[in-house]
Amino acid sequence: MKKILVIEDNPMVIKSLEFKLTKDGNDVMIAHDGREAMKLLKDNAFDLILTDLMLPFVTGNELISYIKKNTPKTPIIVLSTSTQENIIMDAFNMGVDDFITKPFSPNELSLRVRRLLSKN
């Protein structure tokens, strides 16, 4: 069982991700904002992190640089409403593994998660 951290502030999206990823056989933990995510990251090791960019308390970018500093091997998928080129480029430059834009297809997302998990 792989451990996935989902960082997202939209309750509907959280529920769907939790449901889908658990169905896929993962152990899913939820953080509703950047601060909560930091706490969970300190106490747990994750196989994959799925995060939004616009989060309460801690910006997505800050979170990504934190993860990259502490557990550089953990793959990160960004799930964001941004479609702007510079935002996506910034994310990839910071070492993000994949970028999915909202609205998203849950099936596609689950596939990408699986692919990244099997790589490591």
Binding site: M12, F104, S105, E108
Partner: peptide, 15 residues
């Protein structure tokens, strides 16, 4: 409203 809300965030087969 809730179906619309789901629809707004999802695409592909789920939509």
């Amino acid at each position: 409203k809730e179906i619309l809300h789901f629809h707004e965030n999802l695409k592909g087969e789920s939509a």
